[in-house]
Design a binder for these strands. Structure first.
Lengths: 237, 237
DNA sequence: AGCAGATAGTCAATGGCATTGACTTGATTC
DNA sequence: GAATCAAGTCAATGCCATTGACTATCTGCT
């Protein structure tokens, strides 16, 4: 009944119905691919296939790939942690919460993490988080100027550390294996006299992707913030 | 005289003399290009041109681009900070020194920084730095286990923060401008009642590439290490 | 109803890129 | 001085983003 007869028979090439494509539809497909194949798999060709559309149709909705990826990142963030953001009253707990949310989001999409950390730092959609964190820092006892500086320090720390951890996870297994092998081989040849510390602590140094590291680092950062606040209180009083 | 007569006349295509290519020669050319055009400009074609050789000749010396880049990174690091590494006796100063050396190196080659942070973490060539840092941490008062953990925390922190700062610097100007514009526009529309902290501290929040951030973060990390050592001493005694 | 224009999908082509396999050349060795 | 083998070269492949021309299809207008 519809336009071009042969829609029933043997896999006829159909033109996608008009207006069936949109930013949202495309972003959904992009997410599917990104989750399945990572950023490397996210090509216009793959997108076209996923959408049963011609690859270049996407250009009707996004200027270029960068625009698409950036918006995908925003979508994914919104999904993960723009929801509930209510203070517990404990500034440490509040900062810990935001940090872990970012960290978790980066680990969920490892191959996007680097872009997230580098392009996302000043997105308008983050105002709410910035306000929340600033409030926590004020409650920690920092004055306005220190809170602003510390926010940037803390934000950079959380983002960059999370991104690096994720990026290492996102490396192809083969690459990681090769990298580790190179280390192993030379490690065994280290003279204990020249490298006493390494020799003594060898076990503690090997694991790299350990999620424990982030937790430890986070607590240390929070300690440092607390210390800074104490010093400021001492100065002021 | 030489082989194929016409070497004098109008720009004859010469074959590169045998054995005139080597890993070192290629890496030197790679460095030239990387400094001039960044990692994006470092292609086999560009390399070929720089070397007056056919692009694919390089495959006789490196398995693939990854191998080349990785070795380039190693060369650059060796140049920057494998030289002098003598303790000042002050553990804080020693850790600060290594951190700043890494940071400086990353900023010198911004487009390589991300790879440096992700691929370099366990290179055999870093044993000397690891040993040095571990020694400093022991002198700070940490026991073996804590020193090992803290080293990883500190190393991750330094590398990732430095890499992120560099990566942002390495973004094309156009991209950065666009990103900042988006923020600016929405920023002006924020209701001060809903975002009191942001509104009050606006000035302190705008600058992103500020090198001050790294310094602040570093001192905070060192504070945290000191605190940890103090706690450990208190526990033990 | 029928036409004009615009919008959204499609298609074919381009140019950049890494990588591969077949070739050539020249030095070394017997 | 012929065989050999490594090191340069060349042509081709395949993946990728991006562009400009083409073509349906929907909208509103008369």
């Amino acid at each position: 009944m519809s336009t071009k007869g042969a829609s029933s028979g043997t896999a006829a090439k159909k033109r996608r119905p008009r207006d069936s494509l949109s930013r949202d539809v495309i972003l959904e497909a992009a997410e599917t691919i990104a989750v399945r194949d990572g950023l490397e798999g996210l090509t216009f060709a793959a997108l076209g296939q996923e959408l049963h559309a011609h690859a270049t149709s996407i250009y009707r909705h996004f200027r270029d790939k960068d625009e698409l990826v950036l918006e995908l990142i925003d979508v994914l963030r919104a999904k993960s942690y723009d929801k509930e953001l209510t203070s517990t009253g404990d500034w440490r707990e509040d900062l810990r919460f935001t940090a872990k949310a970012i960290h978790a989001n980066y680990q969920r999409y490892p191959s996007l993490a680097h872009q997230m950390s580098v392009r996302t730092t000043r997105r308008p959609t983050e105002f709410r988080n910035v306000e929340f964190a600033l409030d926590a820092l004020r409650r920690a006892g920092l004055d306005d100027a220190s809170a602003a500086t510390t926010l940037r320090v803390f934000g950079n720390f959380v983002r960059s550390t999370s991104a690096m951890e994720a990026s290492i996870r996102a490396l192809p297994d083969k690459v990681r294996a090769t990298d580790e092998l190179a280390w192993e081989i030379e490690y065994r040849q280290l003279p204990a006299e020249e490298f006493p510390n390494i020799s003594r602590m060898s076990d503690g140094l090997m694991t790299v992707g350990d999620p424990q590291i982030f937790e430890e680092a986070l607590e240390m950062m929070l300690d440092a913030i607390e210390l800074r606040a104490q010093r400021q209180a001492a100065d002021g009083g």
